[in-house]
Write a protein that binds this DNA or RNA. Structure first.
Lengths: 109, 109
DNA sequence: AATCTTTATCGTAATATTGCAATATTAAAT
DNA sequence: ATTTAATATTGCAATATTACGATAAAGATT
């Protein structure tokens, strides 16, 4: 095997898993953090900021985009990638909700 | 290759990526949600609640535990797994922080 | 138009993940 | 002491991910 059995889970569960999976790599966390740090969205130097080869960075960006975490357009020979607030919002909401539920719960461990 | 170059990223970035990676699978999301739903922590029937074979569930539980998202002990022939609030707290904090930073930022896309 | 600069894609090797059958383990129940 | 019931481990096949060199694409610069 090796393929995730997504069809057996709810669409909500798959949606969250898609987002968390996309963030499940330090390079992609670093990309997100860099996008937050820079003032504008134009960040053509993102490759130089990461300890990875250019094709690798490009691939990570693609995965973040596929997951809906970043949006952006190619602008000439530079690029404009931004964080998609909606995706981050979903995650924030999800974990805030879990936290609330955990507070009401009596964990034995 | 195929191995993540963790050594090139900060320990904070790796820490978050470890947590998100562990949640990057719908089965593990489903496990977390089930642990929240059940009243007590004793949830020996978790295998029956998931559309996966017992060894697969066991493996997912192990990964969640390795990532620090759940804690628990074996109690005889049943098991007591709980969510580790600290790990969820870290994630909640992380995304809440990003949300705040994004609000202050002017995204162009 | 030729060159430069930047990002994307292709191809591929190394490694990791997913899933499960078979088996082991471990403690409770009989 | 056996059996039962539940979880863990092992081994393995299928698939996915990670990383990068080589190359392509596409607009900017000269």
């Amino acid at each position: 095997m090796g393929a995730t059995k997504t069809e057996h889970f709810t669409s909500k569960q798959n949606a969250i898993a898609t987002l968390t999976k996309a963030l499940g790599h330090p390079a992609r966390i670093a990309i997100i953090e860099y996008l937050i740090k820079v003032d504008t969205c134009i960040c053509g130097d993102i490759v130089n900021k990461l300890p990875l080869a250019q094709p690798t960075v490009s691939q990570h960006l693609k995965e973040l985009k596929n997951a809906g975490l970043i949006k952006g357009e190619i602008e000439g020979n530079s690029i404009c990638y931004c964080i998609d607030e909606k995706a981050i919002g979903k995650l924030q909401n999800y974990f805030a909700n879990i936290t609330i539920k955990l507070e009401k719960k009596n964990n034995c461990c």
